[in-house]
Amino acid sequence: MSEPMIDIRGLCKVFGGAAETVMPLVREGIGKQELLDRHNCVLALRDINLAIPAESIQVVMGLSGSGKSTLIRHINRLIEPTYGDIIVDGQSVSGMDASALRAFRRNTASMVFQGFALMPHRTVRENIGYGLKVRGLDRDEIDTRVSHWIDRIGLDGFADRFPTELSGGMQQRVGLGRALATDPDILLMDEAFSALDPVIRVEMQNILLELQAELRKTIMFITHDLDEALRIGDDIAILRDGEIVQQGAPQDIVLAPADDYIAEFVKDINRGRVIQVGRVMAPITNGTTGPAISHDSLLEAAAIALAEAGADAGIVTAADGRPVGAISRGDLMAAMVARATAGN
């Protein structure tokens, strides 16, 4: 992998008056509670290291209070780090002066918010064009770009409505449109879909994945919903009490949860839609025959393929079509129902 697009290095955040003086204690590993009791400081993030490759979706998952919203606000420096640095495309975000930071926010990273945060006094059109207007583009230019995005995210006919006239899903489309209209390299999504109904949420996830297939942005996506994380993440970092407790590909997290906390999370997950055949296949043995199944197909898809072919087993093939392993119905079933503890 080449240079990461976003590189978070040793990031710590302490809220509270004497933040500077307690940093040495934090590095020595003082407990969160002790820090609060003795020094009246809240430790929000401790030594976060995360490298996000360009054009990928990095999900940061955690429950409320885990520090995930604090973390994402460090990327565009809505919150100042106490210690550590964030390097975006080779440039230190904490080193930027006020005008460089404004330029960074206008051109490079834009944000989608949990509560939509649309401007109630502006129409849909004006909201989507907000970032462009702040950037100082002329009206015609803004109009063309905004019209493109209104069309692209399915808001035709709503351009001159006010946000309060729209449903939640529609409002978040506006939020997404506003973020994309500035054509940023980085999209920061802070629980962007958490406030939506389950059906609308899935719909928005699909829109995002569709757009991502075409736009190839670097996306940091915050969520507290594991299903959502597994669905859209290329890579997932799990945050707990301000620390990353596990990071990896979705199927790695499901197959090998790092601790009981994560195991508890993943135990009710539909493993058939997360794990790929390549992870659970058996070595190829002589005489195995059956339909060819790509190594990166999901267990569920493989099961369907076997059932349709009426075969008991299949040959797993690599990207180049070379056979690399075998998978039987029994293996598939075992992998789909295995309890998380089995992966430990």
Binding site: R105, M111, M119
Partner: peptide
Amino acid sequence: VDRDVLEAADAFGAS
């Protein structure tokens, strides 16, 4: 004025 809306203005680089 709603803090969230102000944060959004900041996030888009408003002066």
